[in-house]
Design a protein around this nucleic acid. Structure first.
Length: 568
DNA sequence: ATCGTAGGCGCC
DNA sequence: AAAGGGCGCCTACGAT
């Protein structure tokens, strides 16, 4: 059969499934194309620069497209846009559709309850994606959409309908154009996440084994061996105790009781509380050292290596906006690999890593979203905190603590003292934060500059306990205050990441890690320097696309390295 | 057995 | 400097 061809301005919905085929849909036509390798077929249709593709989300399109390596830049991911509109985490498609069509959530069909309500619901034609009551058919959501090319085409067509409704809802946001732009960038970021999930992060496995051995000992040969090594680690702490009494170091309550017997009365046993004591107290020092080693042994040890590292790549599940404020998330330790383990992340032979991080991203984003002229002026400096310090008449470090404290909602200590100075010098920025905090305390949702709803949750039953209600409200205030900044920073970061992804293609540069304000790009050595220049200029391109305030300056630190640990 | 929660800690 | 926001993942433990 002849394949359809599309212009760049076209908007085409797609769903595909390996071994089955692909379905395409425009407002006026559908194509049901059988193919065992639908990725190859779609790649041929797409060419170098295809239309804007529309899809339901990861299952129906982004994941298979990522695995097929199709160079799609412009897309619309209905699930990702749903999270932008409604807030919160990844939602089942049945819920996404119900919320778009304002369907009753009480009648939302669940998988596995089909027999239960026999006769209660008119099942209609099972070869149609919608039930007569308007809900998505749960068995279609659960994989039924990919049974035949015809079903894939029907599924794609429905995604097109969903997109139209989402566009109308985005148009009702306070800043419709910004919201529409965010919908597109969040969609592309979700595709990037599909690619990072499929391809993984390059890892030097020999170095990984060496680091794990250093931290946790040789690979245990048996369960008994593993127990013995645990006991050895424990003894380094327990030897400081006179008492014969057994203390389970993994039980915080027992540790707290033990410390009390030893003369340390602490409200909890968190590391920062004990940090100042460790210089003079061998027991405390041993305990803190044990905690660090235990963390690596349990979380980043041999089991972690076996489960997540294969064929030189560390693979985790990436999501574009599964955080409350819209940050990316990643499993398999990709976002919290301890610094001492970072040497295991290394470029493959013939390749290099370009590592880049945005400098002082949160206060710069605050300047952008608030439009505070004083703060915008401060962003001209490489070190934004220097002009803030002179304005406040305090030391530079104090200025930093004060600004961060204002964005996190700190209430005590030195940063609270500097708050008055911040209010005087940066009234617009501080007012924005205060307003967000007030909305949060009142349990009202807030919206990022990109139009993302951030849910404040239900008020919560505090059983009439006034103290608990007040402290819960205060916590919501801190959360809302921070969410505007964290969420906007996440939006800007994702625009940067997808810009690097797109601009990196001619250089064979691949984004392999996103870490809130930091990017790792894997690139052939021959293109490494060009990639570094591109990553830097992508910051400014992203700022032009994203920033509501063109005068805000964003900065990045960029370097070419072989191992992640060589950075800085 | 399986679940949710808490304390703890890694990263930003 | 203070201990504030986010996430994932570990162990222990109580409830089911």
């Amino acid at each position: 059969m002849t394949l359809p061809s599309f212009a760049r301005d076209d908007i085409v919905a797609v769903a595909l499934a390996p071994g089955v085929g692909l379905g395409l849909a425009t407002p006026s036509r559908r194509w049901a194309i059988p193919a065992t390798d639908p990725g190859a077929v779609l790649g041929a249709i797409h060419g170098d620069r295809g239309p804007r593709w529309v899809w339901w989300g990861r299952d129906a399109a982004a994941d298979p497209i990522a695995r097929a390596g199709i160079p799609v830049d412009r897309c619309w991911d209905v699930s990702a846009v749903h999270r932008l509109l409604e807030g919160g985490w990844r939602a089942p498609l049945g819920l996404v559709w119900a919320s778009l069509r304002d369907l009753d959530l009480d009648t939302l069909p669940q998988m596995g309850q089909l027999g239960l309500l026999d006769g209660a619901v008119d099942e209609g034609d099972r070869d149609q994606p919608l039930r007569p009551d308007g809900h998505l058919r749960p068995e279609w959501v659960d994989g039924g959409f990919r049974e035949t090319p015809e079903r894939l085409a029907a599924w794609a067509a429905l995604a097109l309908d969903a997109m139209r409704v989402q566009e109308r809802r985005l148009a009702r946001r306070a800043e419709p154009e910004q919201a529409m732009a965010t919908a597109r960038s969040e969609s592309a970021a979700e595709l990037l996440c599909a690619e990072m999930t499929a391809h993984g992060l390059p890892v030097d496995e020999a170095e990984a084994r060496r680091l794990i051995t250093e931290a946790a000992g040789e690979r245990p040969s048996s369960v008994a061996d593993e127990d013995a090594r645990r006991a050895e680690r424990d003894d380094l702490v327990l030897q400081h105790l006179d008492s014969r009494r057994q203390v389970n170091l993994r039980n915080p309550a027992e540790v707290k009781a033990m410390l009390r017997r030893e003369g340390f009365d602490l409200p909890d046993t968190r590391a920062w509380r004990m940090e100042t004591l460790r210089a003079d107290e061998p027991l405390i020092d041993a305990l803190l050292t044990w905690r660090r080693a235990e963390r690596i042994a349990t979380t980043y040890g041999w089991r972690w290596l076996d489960e997540h590292v294969r064929a030189g790549r560390l693979r985790g599940e990436w999501a574009g906006s599964d955080g409350a404020a819209g940050r990316m998330t990643a499993s398999a330790g990709l976002h919290n690999l301890p610094a001492v383990m970072r040497p295991l992340v290394a470029a493959e032979p013939g390749h290099a890593l370009v590592r880049a991080d945005l400098g002082q991203i949160e206060p710069r984003v605050l300047a952008a979203v608030s439009g505070d002229v004083g703060l915008i002026r401060a962003t001209r400096q490489d070190d934004l905190y220097a002009p803030v310090a002179s304005a406040l008449g305090v030391e530079r470090d104090m200025a930093k603590v004060a600004v961060l404290g204002a964005m996190y909602g700190a209430t005590t200590g030195a940063s609270a003292g500097a708050l008055a100075g911040l209010r005087t010098n940066y009234p617009v920025a501080m007012e924005l934060l205060e307003h967000a905090a007030e909305l949060g305390r009142r349990s009202q949702d807030v919206f990022t500059v990109g139009g993302r709803r951030v849910r404040m949750g239900v008020t919560g039953d505090t059983d009439g306990d006034i103290d608990r209600a007040v402290s819960a409200a205060a916590a919501r205030g801190r959360f809302a205050r921070n969410a505007l900044i964290q969420g906007a920073a996440a939006e800007f970061f994702k625009v940067w990441a997808i810009t690097v992804r797109r601009r990196g293609r001619p250089l064979e540069a691949e984004v392999v890690l996103c870490l809130h304000d930091e990017l790792l790009v894997h690139v052939p050595v021959a293109h490494a320097d060009a990639a570094a220049v591109m990553v830097e200029s992508a910051v400014h391109e992203a700022a032009r696309y994203w920033s509501p305030q063109p005068d805000v300056r964003f900065v990045a630190d960029v370097c070419v390295i072989d191992r992640w640990s060589e950075a800085k």
